[in-house]
Structure formats: structure tokens, C-alpha cells
Design a protein around this nucleic acid. Structure first.
Length: 156
DNA sequence: GCCAACGTTGGC
DNA sequence: GCCAACGTTGGC
């Protein structure tokens, strides 16, 4: 099965790609996804898939690097942790509801590719991220889109 | 801080 | 099942 590509969002004030670079093993649980469509994309991820790491709610927002899926979807225990900001009263160990994957840092781009620059690239015109009103924190990315963004990050 | 877009909730 | 109210996301 071919490697698939995705884009995952994180607010750098909460967890940035630089936090991931400092994390043990440069890996982390991608916890806190609380949207069913995004969760289903997480569940479709396979070991070895590549994800663009996007900084949302940042100045400027943009793509900061690439991570690899190192563990496929498993229950997200923050869902039934009453002290977690991601707590969901519907969830329990018997009924986890929410999933997370584990990701490992592959590359911090030599420069972040800002959102306004992505919008100017024809090859990216169909990207989910660029759709008006798009809020999904996990989205699929085509191989061509993935390549185009890596190229933007490593040129200029 | 504003607000458009979208998802979820809950009354009916 | 409809839909109004409400909450959240995230760019600006």
C-alpha cells in the first residue's frame, strides 16, 4: 500500500513543531482531535504515512514541517480525563469515542511556508486547507500537493 | 477582538 | 427529522 499524505493542524501556542523537536524520541501522541470527520481521517492513517505539520492560529499561519505516522489509531485517554481540556463526558475507557495516532518528526522546514503563499500556488488550488471556511484539523493531501509544498519550503 | 463558517445540541 | 441556538475554529 502506497504511503498516503495528510495535513494536521496544531496551534503553536499549544504545541509547535519545535516542541515536537524537543520531545522524547521526537514523537508525540496526536491527542485532542474532537471532530468526527477528522477522527475518521486519523483512523485511516497507516504507519509510514507522511503528514504536513501546520501551525494554525499563528502569525503567520503556515506549514512548518513533516512528521511520520509511527503508530496507527488507538484510544485517546484525554477524552475521559476530567482535568484535560479535551475532556468529553461521552467517552470512557470502555467507550473511548476518540482516537489518536503517534507521530514522529521527520523534518523541520528550513522556512515555514505561510498560508498566503500557499494560496498563490496553482497546484494547490484544490487543497482542503484553502477552502473557504475549512476548519478540519486533519485532512488528506494529494501526493502532488505534498510535493509542491515541500518544494516551496526548500526553495527560495 | 471580530466574525464567518461550520459542527453540535436539544426542543419540538 | 427539522432547525434555532449555541459553541468552536481560525484567519484577519
Amino acid at each position: 500500500m502506497a504511503v498516503k499524505h495528510w495535513l494536521i493542524k496544531s496551534e503553536p501556542d499549544v504545541f509547535s513543531i519545535h516542541d515536537l523537536a524537543k520531545a522524547k524520541g521526537r514523537r508525540t501522541n496526536w491527542e485532542g482531535v474532537r471532530n468526527y470527520q477528522a477522527r475518521n481521517f486519523l483512523r485511516a492513517m497507516r504507519q509510514g504515512d507522511r503528514c504536513l505539520f501546520y501551525h494554525s492560529n499563528a502569525d503567520p499561519p503556515g506549514v512548518a514541517g513533516v512528521v511520520e505516522v509511527v503508530r496507527e489509531a488507538h484510544p485517546d485517554p484525554t477524552a475521559w480525563d476530567a482535568k484535560s481540556p479535551y475532556h468529553d463526558p461521552k467517552a470512557s475507557p470502555d467507550n473511548p469515542v476518540w482516537s489518536m495516532v503517534d507521530v514522529q518528526l521527520l523534518e523541520v522546514f528550513p522556512r515555514e511556508v505561510p498560508l498566503d503563499e500557499l494560496r498563490q500556488v496553482k497546484a494547490l488550488a484544490g487543497m482542503e486547507l484553502l477552502r473557504r471556511g475549512s476548519r478540519l484539523s486533519v485532512t488528506p493531501v494529494t501526493p502532488a500537493e505534498f510535493r509542491a509544498i515541500v518544494k516551496l519550503a526548500t526553495s527560495r
